[in-house]
């Protein structure tokens, strides 16, 4: 079973693609602006998540995996920074 983080990444990615296509298809000004803002909000959330959780986790994972003495520090469950 995939972790909730993987599902949330997938939802975010799907929302971005949907909003990009709908934004292209909508012609009226107001709905286009709303869709664009939604797109930027979702993108912002995803970038913030990447910068504050995903990237530090990857770096920590790399550091802990790089040295034998650190192996006991590495947790088996989902990593939270």
């Amino acid at each position: 079973m995939a972790s909730i983080d993987s599902y949330l990444h997938l939802i975010g990615f799907e929302l971005l693609v949907i909003l990009a296509i709908v934004g292209y298809l909508v012609e009226a000004d107001l709905p286009k602006r709303v869709v664009s803002r939604l797109f930027i909000t979702v993108l912002g959330f995803m970038l913030a998540h990447f910068a504050t959780h995903a990237l530090p986790n990857q770096i920590a994972d790399f550091i802990y995996s790089s040295h034998h003495d650190y192996h006991s520090i590495k947790s088996a469950g989902p990593h939270r920074t």
Partner: peptide, 20 residues
């Protein structure tokens, strides 16, 4: 479980995406 809800929503969005 939250992951069940998130999984179902991700699957639904994938189906909606196919309609595009």
């Amino acid at each position: 479980a939250l992951s069940t809800i998130a999984g179902a929503i991700a699957a639904c969005l994938a189906v909606s995406l196919c309609s595009l």
